[in-house]
Design a binder for these strands. Structure first.
Length: 547
RNA sequence: GGCCCGUUGGUCAAGCGGUUAAGACAUCACCCUUUCACGGUGGUAUCGUGGGUUCGAUUCCCGCACGGGUCACCA
């Protein structure tokens, strides 16, 4: 069979260049030894999720700790589900978490000589190589319809055989010249398949940068290279793009492990050097006792918008991810408490080989801790950013008065230095925590643990003697002075010595006042709160709480 | 079902032939305290299972069980 003629018949494009030319168009990158070139290659089918961030973080760290390059490529070969604005969304989301690309789709960079970075714009390259493979007899046209393939699959299933297009099931592999040309003449749609030379019974050891030595079976499937619409499949595009974009390290989810044999054969058939592969274990969650991979559809916590809208501190999300990416990160962080996470020496071989259960508690703890380390001003900026995007109209009004908020924040967070409170876990919850400082948002729950008489006596008694000018010790002395009036112990020691003799103690007096003023039995320093509210509002709240 | 990957406390995990089997989150108790936090001290709790190899296995080998992934003209 005249393969050259066949190649031209199958791929008649007259704008293709000699594939070898691409080696010159996309020369090897001029980078220091050991520099890693990594990429994030999402499909623009939806929005970016935590798994993408997880993987992007590993990519970004590997590139930037080695003096390499991290770029963005868009895998838009499946044109069925493209979402507009998805690319911008990916970049924006990643930026929010402090991750930046050096080059790639929609990225301003002088480095962009390896583009285009949208696969659909690279059709010529793929087709040039497909054509060459046909000429070399390593690829052939397949005219099988979906129905025919289904039929074969059913039969294979019935006989408990491996499904797929291989061996004797690869019908079109042995089509005669006449059959091919008559199918072509009849206008039958076709795909281009690889003529696999592998043998499933042959196994090799392959070194994965994360998993270590793994067993891979040779591929014997005549997989599709070019779909009937002329667009390449992921496998084919992956081999060509990662070769010509000079990727050195491919970090991807372990769900790709099973197609590694295909990729290995493809790189070999194309004459390309294979990159280093690193297959990451997936993020899991428990669902009714069972463990499963985090799913885009079922789990809102997989969406990055979830973290943005709930107001987790972005730096904390990254740090949490880093703790599961490299388990020694936490240890390093303890030794370098205020350092930028970018100073941590990330190691790919430190990555976990088993699936990690996503732990929201741990994230919350990290977020709380990070926020507690902020100054009141920094915290204000962070909260205000959240309020502008997600807050209510009332929140926005409240946050316009920065001075007032900062005063509150100084109280809530504790004054600088030691003894920082960790009350704010997320912006959303932190903003709600401040509601009682605003009359229009004050929503008290008057659940007093004492009788109306006692409550009113405390409220009225305190209203009589309250003076905003009092410092903390005078203020507390006044609280104590109320105790005898309601039969409570003014002195804690006395109360503990003889609890039965009293109806309560000073802490109970404080609790009554606290509930009246803040609407809740839990709050930071009450004296300071009253100071911030001022005399009139404090007295007003004492009055409003009367039974 | 075939193939591949994995299995140390509730969770993330250190460990890499001999350890009282780190640490963090969570949890419990106590201390501190005008509440709640913060902080401090201490506690509960882990090597899936059966065989080997070895003087000795959490560590090495094999089987089994369990969990996960994958078997498209989707990525």
């Amino acid at each position: 069979m005249d393969l050259k003629k066949l190649a031209s018949a199958l791929i008649p494009d007259d704008d293709l260049i000699d594939p070898d030319k691409y080696e010159e168009i996309y020369p090897p990158r001029d980078l220091p030894a050991g520099a890693q070139v990594t990429r994030l290659a999402p499909s623009p089918t939806g929005f970016i999720h935590l798994g993408n961030l997880f993987s992007a973080l590993a990519d970004e760290r590997m590139a930037h700790t080695t003096g390499g390059v991290f770029y963005l490529r868009i895998e838009d070969t499946d044109l069925k589900r493209k979402v507009d604005g998805a690319v911008e969304s990916v970049i924006r989301s990643l930026n929010y978490f402090g991750i930046k690309f050096d080059e790639g789709a929609e990225i301003e960079s002088k480095l962009n000589i390896y583009g285009p970075y949208y696969q659909r714009q690279r059709a010529k390259i793929y087709r040039a190589y497909a054509k060459r493979l046909i000429e070399e007899g390593r690829a052939y046209p397949c005219f099988c319809t979906e129905e025919e393939l289904d039929e074969v699959r059913k039969e294979q299933n019935a006989q408990k055989l491996i499904t797929g297009y291989y061996g004797k099931y690869a019908k079109c592999r042995s089509l005669s010249e006449e059959q091919i040309y008559s199918n072509l003449a009849a206008g039958k749609p076709f795909v281009i398949r690889l003529r696999s030379e592998g043998d499933v019974n042959v196994k090799h050891t392959f070194h994965d940068a994360i998993k270590g030595d793994i067993t891979v079976t040779e591929n014997d499937q005549d997989i599709v290279l070019i779909k009937s619409d002329g667009i390449p499949t992921y496998h084919f595009a992956h081999a060509i793009d990662d070769h010509f974009m000079r990727t050195t390290l491919v970090i991807r989810g372990e769900e790709w492990l099973s197609s590694l044999p295909i990729h290995l054969e493809l790189f070999k058939a194309l004459g390309f050097k294979t990159p280093v592969y690193a297959h990451t274990s997936s993020l899991m969650k428990t669902d009714g006792g069972a463990r499963r991979k985090l799913s885009k559809r079922k789990d809102p916590e997989l969406s990055l918008d979830y973290y943005r809208s709930a107001g987790y501190y972005p730096d904390a999300v990254v740090r949490y991810l880093l703790t599961i990416l490299n388990s020694n990160f936490e240890e390093w962080e303890r030794k370098n408490p205020r350092s930028d996470w970018r100073d941590f020496k990330f190691k790919i071989d430190k990555m976990s080989r088993s699936g990690t259960l996503f732990d929201l508690d741990k994230l919350s703890d990290i977020s709380r801790t990070r926020i507690s380390q902020l100054s009141a001003e920094e915290c204000y900026e962070f909260l205000r950013g959240w309020v502008e995007e997600f807050g209510t109209e009332a929140d926005k009004l409240h946050f316009a008065d920065g001075e007032y908020i900062i005063k509150i924040l100084n109280l809530i967070m504790g004054t600088s230095g030691k003894k920082r409170r960790k009350d704010i876990e997320r912006a959303e919850q932190g903003v709600r925590l401040m509601d009682y400082f605003f009359d229009d948002a004050f929503n008290p729950d008057y659940s007093f643990r004492f009788g109306d008489g006692t409550v009113n006596a405390v409220l009225d008694g305190f209203a009589e003697i309250y003076d905003p000018a009092d410092d903390n010790s005078v203020w507390f002395a006044k609280v104590k002075s109320l105790a005898p009036r309601v039969g409570f112990a003014a002195d804690m020691g006395e109360y503990k010595a003889n609890p039965g003799a009293y109806g309560g103690n000073v802490s109970d007096i404080a609790e009554i006042l606290r509930i009246a003023v803040t609407g809740s039995p839990n709050s930071p320093d009450l004296c300071t709160i009253m100071g911030i509210l001022g005399r009139e509002r404090t007295l007003g709240r004492l009055r409003a709480a009367r039974r």
